[in-house]
Nucleic acid binder design. Structure first.
Length: 572
DNA sequence: GCCGTTTTCGGCCCGACTGTTTTCAGTCG
């Protein structure tokens, strides 16, 4: 059973938590956390890298020590060091860190003074009033612990970007109407357009800071105010999301925006540059001694270090600084570059709108072309099209193409890749199509090698065009199936096939890291909405976000091509 | 535990807010 990167990362995170509770060197703790982040976000499995005899110390934050530990976990599924630590410091203590207000020092005190090792014991101690007697604790912190234990993990997990938008866009509008508020922007991972956000960081320029904070805490969606100071406030919203507001002066706005956009690692890298030049960088600006020498715009800050503006989507400490320094930042794809949408459904299978309604919807978005991709019969619940149904649809598309101006409808199908790698419809009907979008909707649990072979065998079919939602993952709901993506991408390159970034915000598949891997290999990706309704066509922008996070330029995207260029690329 | 245009040793980000204090430690982002 191969060990997943996420499992290795979880072991390192656990070690970091327990070491921190023990009071270990904070930088050692940080090293484990950084390694966990690197491994969790790495596109290929550590096991594969080791099998290829690759040097793991090339990875950011991995030295000889941690490389050995990764090897041990891959080979044995476990790490002896962790078991040793857990003998001293019970694993349950790490769980207590998840309670807001409890950090390593307080958890350590609960353990050493009261012998608490689990959340249940913590609850008992708090209920019996023992906690308030401890040094550094009081009645309020005891109350807080009980309250946090009552919550059913409202903060646990991350929220889909599209869902977070529903909370934050009305808030931004609310601020725009408040007198004295000059500007409002959402920073954090939201601005970096990460597929999920933990909390929301809202930044406002106002000279009436106290008043702005006050209005924030009165906002109709706020159910609980966690903190309220002179420059910032934190509140829980009805959706369960935590929103942090910072109110700053105009002259500090760029520094604050930079600081709160992150990522943390990107900020640290820039801060190191500052330190190297004898400067200090904080959320108020860049300081030479006491004098602020930049801070009003982000551009000013980057310029101070001879760097161009780095788009937020790239600020993940994944080589963007080196690229910026060497003048090879990508010219990222934008929504305006998109000329068509190559996956969508109609009432002929499981869509809500008719073919004509979808065509009108696409035309209104200003695209030149679109592909209709209803399901094939194998996905029985969607009432997919059999050969006869598809033939009828093809005729209708031809009629519509004659009738409608300003849009070209391409004939296509989302055809199932069956367990043995064959496609769900016969070649003589696939031949009539302009392209196919091929996907896995069954047998998700095949072993990795089998699943990979299945998909590559499907690509051997000359009618195979685009591999749709290549990993099958649903954000927060379903993990990706086991495949060797690099091998699949290589196979696609060799056969003139394409992979998709599915723009549905609950899929976003390929993800950012995988999209970048494709780009690095020279593979062209399609960004498709997979819309099942006319409003669903608007999902394109989430796909663009993900593509930008994957460093894609317009040339890396299939559906930025003109129709005639597209047609020639579709010839295998 | 990592890392190196200042370093193979000695650095490793820093300010706001809360609660428990009586001048500050701990937590958070």
């Amino acid at each position: 059973m191969p060990v997943h990167n996420s499992e290795i990362a979880a072991i390192f995170s656990q070690i970091a938590d327990l070491l921190e509770i023990e009071g270990a060197n904070a930088f050692r703790v940080r090293a484990y956390r950084k390694a966990a982040r690197t491994i969790r976000g790495y596109p290929r499995s550590m096991g594969d890298l080791l099998e290829e005899d690759r040097d793991l110390t090339q990875l950011s934050g991995i030295g000889n020590d941690l490389a050995d530990k990764i090897r041990e976990i891959v080979e044995t599924g476990d790490l002896a060091q962790l078991e040793k630590i857990e003998q001293r410091t019970p694993a349950g203590l790490a769980k207590m860190l998840e309670i807001k207000g409890l950090g390593p020092r307080k958890v350590q005190r609960l353990h050493s003074d009261l012998g608490i090792t689990s959340l249940d014991q913590l609850r008992e101690a708090a209920e019996s009033g023992q906690v308030r007697e401890l040094d550094g604790f009081g009645a309020k912190s005891e109350q807080n612990i009980l309250k946090e234990l009552e919550r059913e993990n409202p903060h646990a997990g991350r929220t889909q970007l599209s869902v977070a938008e529903e909370t934050v866009l009305p808030l931004v509008n609310y601020f725009k109407d408040i007198e004295g508020v000059e500007q409002v922007e959402v920073a954090g991972s939201y601005r970096r357009r990460k597929e999920t956000v933990g909390d929301l960081d809202v930044l406002a320029i106002s000279e009436a800071r106290g008043d702005t904070i006050q209005r924030f805490t009165e906002y109709e969606d706020v159910v609980e105010v966690i903190s309220r100071g002179e420059t910032r406030s934190t509140a829980i919203f009805r959706s369960g999301l935590q929103v942090d507001l910072r109110v700053v002066h105009r002259e500090n706005y760029g520094a604050a925006l930079f600081y709160f956009t992150g990522s943390r690692d990107h900020n640290l890298a820039i801060r190191r540059l500052a330190l190297g030049q004898g400067l200090k960088l904080n959320e108020y600006g860049v300081f030479q001694d006491e004098e602020c020498i930049a801070g009003e715009t982000e551009r000013d800050i980057y310029a101070l270090f001879d760097l161009p503006f780095i788009p937020p989507e790239l600020r993940e400490a994944q080589g963007e600084l080196a690229a910026a320094r060497e003048g090879r930042l990508p010219d990222l794809v934008t929504l305006d570059d998109i000329r068509g949408d190559l996956q969508m459904h109609t009432t002929d299978s499981d869509g809500d709108a008719t073919l004509k309604e979808m065509a009108q919807g696409v035309r209104e978005r200003g695209y030149e072309y679109m592909a209709i991709t209803d399901h094939s019969p194998h996905v029985a619940v969607t009432q997919g099209l059999d050969a006869a149904g598809l033939n009828r649809q093809i005729d209708e598309i031809e009629r519509l193409n004659d009738e409608m101006e300003g849009i070209t409808i391409l004939k296509s199908i989302e055809v199932d890749i069956l367990e043995d790698g064959s496609l769900d419809l016969p070649d003589d009907i696939l031949e009539r199509l302009d392209l196919t979008v091929c996907s896995v909707h069954s047998h998700f649990d095949l072993p990795r090698e089998k699943q990979t072979e299945r998909i590559i065998r499907a690509m051997d079919n000359p009618h195979f065009t685009i591999l749709a939602h290549p990993t099958g993952r649903m954000i927060g709901k379903r993990p990706p199936y086991e495949i060797d993506l690099e091998q699949i991408m290589q196979a696609a390159l060799e056969r003139g096939c394409f992979l998709e970034i599915n723009a549905d915000p609950s899929r976003l598949d390929l993800n950012d890291v995988q999209a970048r891997m494709a780009r690095d290999m020279g593979l062209i990706l399609a960004i498709d909405t997979d819309a099942h309704s006319v409003p669903g066509l608007a999902y394109m922008r989430f796909g663009i976000d993900q593509a930008r996070r994957g460093w894609l330029e317009a040339g890396d995207v299939l559906n930025t091509r003109s129709l005639s260029d597209l047609r020639s690329l579709l010839q295998r």
